[in-house]
Every structure is written in structure tokens, then in C-alpha cells.
């Protein structure tokens, strides 16, 4: 059997309160697999930010996480409106969130910047009108 753990989560775009469930679940699995706290924390932050983005901007989506002793790869795929200008979206403080979302305390424009800070690599591909795919990788330093 290959040393890869695959986890899949569907993110419900209608349910604000459930956002964060996938990152919580992944956090617990990583811990039980024996990953260190720093890595567990970074993975949880990245995933949480991604999850929130999918709920706010894309009416939900799907998360696929694959974990090997070398790396954690997280793919977030949605069928939302897409991001017209990815470079702009990466800037701290830039947000297209609605006032309603901002009133709830989200939309500070820190989602993608945080993902970039805590992941070892971040790739965002987006097609306006079709959706966005976010790939984050966390590399595991050999012990």
C-alpha cells in the first residue's frame, strides 16, 4: 500500500457556520499520523482560509488533501465566478467580499496572503465564470 493518505471534503456554500470543519478534521488526522505541531498549525490555517474563501466567494466547492511523509498537498476546487486578476487578489487587504460578509467579520483581504505565508507553495489558477483551483503544498523536512 502506498504511503499516501487521501482525504476528501465537500464544502457547503450555504453554511457559514460549517466553514472550518474540513480544516479541523485535517488537523486531527495529521496529528494522529504523527506530524509536528508547527506543520499541523500551518496546514490548518491554509485550509481554513481556503475553506472560508470558497464559502464567501464561490458557493462552496471540494477539498482534496493528500498526505505523504514528504509533503501535504491540498487542492481546493470550486465552480464560482473565478478571480479576474489573481495578482491583485494576492495583495494584503484586497477583497471583493460583500458588505454582508464583511459585517460577519470576514473579507479582510488576508485569505490568500495568509495561504501564501503559511504554505511552502501556492498556485492559483482561475477561469472567470468557471471557477478557481488552489493548490497548496507543505513540504516536510526530512528528519
Amino acid at each position: 500500500m502506498p504511503d499516501v493518505v487521501r482525504l476528501h471534503y465537500d464544502v457547503d456554500g450555504e453554511n457559514f457556520m460549517a466553514a472550518g470543519e474540513a480544516s479541523s478534521a485535517v488537523k486531527n488526522v495529521l496529528r494522529r499520523l504523527g506530524f509536528g505541531e508547527d506543520l499541523v498549525r500551518r496546514a490548518a490555517i491554509c485550509l481554513y482560509e481556503g475553506e472560508i474563501n470558497m464559502v464567501i466567494h464561490a458557493n462552496g466547492g471540494a477539498i482534496d488533501v493528500s498526505v505523504s511523509p514528504q509533503a501535504i498537498e491540498m487542492v481546493l476546487q470550486d465552480q464560482g465566478d473565478g478571480i479576474p486578476d489573481i495578482e491583485q487578489a494576492m495583495r494584503e487587504g484586497f477583497s471583493t467580499a460583500s458588505d454582508r460578509v464583511r459585517d460577519l467579520g470576514f473579507g479582510a483581504g488576508m485569505g490568500l496572503p495568509n495561504m501564501r505565508r503559511y504554505a511552502d507553495s501556492l498556485e492559483v489558477t482561475s477561469e472567470p465564470g468557471k471557477g478557481t483551483r488552489v493548490l497548496m503544498t507543505l513540504r516536510i523536512a526530512p528528519v
Binding site: M1, D3, V4, V5, V29, R31, R32, L33, G34, F35, V67, S68, P69
Partner: peptide, 19 residues
């Protein structure tokens, strides 16, 4: 106190998780 860890060896832990 890692009583919830599947295994002390990560590769074995992953294999156990899959099973």
C-alpha cells in the same frame, strides 16, 4: 501524551489510517 497517534512511524501510521 500521544495516545491518539496511529503509530510512532509515520509511514506505518498512514498505512493504518488507510486501512
Amino acid at each position: 501524551v500521544p495516545v491518539w497517534q496511529f503509530d510512532t512511524d509515520m509511514a506505518t501510521a498512514m498505512e493504518k489510517h488507510a486501512r
